[in-house]
Nucleic acid binder design. Structure first.
Lengths: 251, 251
DNA sequence: GGAATATTGTCCGCCACCGTACCTAAAACC
DNA sequence: GGTTTTAGGTACGGTGGCGGACAATATTCC
């Protein structure tokens, strides 16, 4: 079973997304027709290359991004040497979350981790829509709550788990957000996201590879045994994903 | 400067809270009059003794709690031996957050860490109010976003900081939520919240005490140098509090 | 094809924290 | 007042991950 299965749009969604490509984003896809009429025209398509900064830490928000493919990382930054990923999102979410409740400044940095494309709206349009479009506002709020659950599990795994377990959880979350079983990643980048040394990532990957859970090549990791990975991740994977499904629906 | 100063209600607030004691809660205090008319009558006063469980992990939500004094802890639970605090809240918030967007199940466990009192509403009333009372809904959503920022800093400090630095941050956050400089806490309880061994808390407290930042007695910790604590906490304290002020206002 | 660069593999000493155990002192109880 | 309970102090070996350095491959670029 590949991750693609989890995320392959249903035929109904395919038809809908044919009407507007932005509806590949799970949140936008759930908007009622009377709200899409106003939201969709305000969207501007954007390519999201790896490393693209959606918003800086403590920086004013200019646009709100709805990703259709690729992965974004939300990174907490306290100092140059003190930074770590809080959570990640793909086409099931949006960023920066603060804009979803009327905020104008982002606490965290948000950057593209796996390249893709999506759409963006000027902050002002989002802010206004929050009061005029209740379903839109509630949808964004629901995502913030689901994402908050994800972050709380990041916090948990950061103290209770060893590097290899945290890595397993992180790879599973990436897997959920890409098509297929291959993910383009370097050890160095992973080490930044997990907040560990680069060599720690190398040895942790060797552990997973030794258990036949993944296959690691230069700049690319292939998931081979998803179920085994979940067992290895020591119960830190799954609950936040459940919360998303309860509050919003399938990824 | 004591924490009490931060939280002492302004004279305007005192007058308002005289009209209804639940308005000591910062969120309820910000509701417009036309919304309080419906929200306040649905509130039931509750005592919140230490250890009281507001909601269990993965459990259905029955009531939504608005604290007026004391501190609640939001704890992520993956297994009996795998649990750690994600964040804490006092009269500036509510719990469980999931109910604030229409959820009926709480991912995390929420329990009372420092005793106090507050008010609670049946879940059903909250859920209905979300669609009929837009300011109420937005206020809860703003708190969820602010709390999410707090959790992301917990996640950061969990990997980048040593136990004594994390302890300093945690004590500062407690200090913000009690009146005065004394906090009733045992090493054992702190160790549960920080996810470390109890002896690690003892030695970390000795470090802070050696620097004259706190004074530790049996079952009680007194903050003596708030500024020094902030310096010691290595930039992991402050940003989430800023986000709260930006989105909602003073604590 | 060869040089420069990016990525990955491996080693070493170090230390913060762990698990566990045991002891002391303060408070509560009868 | 003496016993039980609860909270705090200390010790010890073990270890996961750190900081840092260096070597060995793939890729890319000229």
């Amino acid at each position: 079973m590949t991750a693609a299965r989890h995320f392959r749009p249903t035929s109904a969604r395919i038809m809908k997304s044919a009407s507007h490509p932005a509806l590949q984003n799970r949140l936008l896809a759930l908007l009622p027709e009377n709200e899409t009429h106003v939201i969709l025209p305000a969207l501007e398509p954007v390519d999201l290359p790896r490393g693209f900064v959606i918003v800086g830490a403590d920086a004013p928000i200019e646009h709100v991004y709805f990703i259709c493919s690729g992965i974004g990382s939300v990174v907490t930054v306290a100092a140059e040497t003190q930074r770590a990923e809080a959570g990640m999102f793909g086409r099931e979410g949006f960023a920066p979350t603060s804009a979803g409740v009327g905020g104008t400044i982002s606490v965290q940095e948000v950057l593209i981790q796996v390249e893709g494309h999506g759409f963006r709206m000027p902050l002002k349009v989002v802010t206004e829509a929050l009061s005029t479009h209740p379903t839109f506002a509630n949808l964004l709020a629901r995502f913030i709550q689901a994402f908050s659950a994800q972050i709380s599990y990041t916090a948990l795994s950061n103290i209770t788990c060893q590097v290899d377990e945290r890595l397993a959880r992180w790879l599973l979350m990436c897997h959920d957000r890409v098509d297929g079983d291959e993910i383009a990643l370097t050890h160095d980048f992973i080490s930044l996201m997990l907040g560990v040394r680069r060599p720690s990532v190398t040895t942790a990957l060797h552990v997973l590879e030794g258990r036949k859970l993944i296959q690691a090549e230069r700049g690319r990791i292939t998931i081979r045994d998803r179920k085994g990975m979940q067992d290895f991740a020591a119960r830190t994977y799954g609950k936040p994903e459940e919360e998303y499904r309860r509050l919003i629906g399938e990824f």
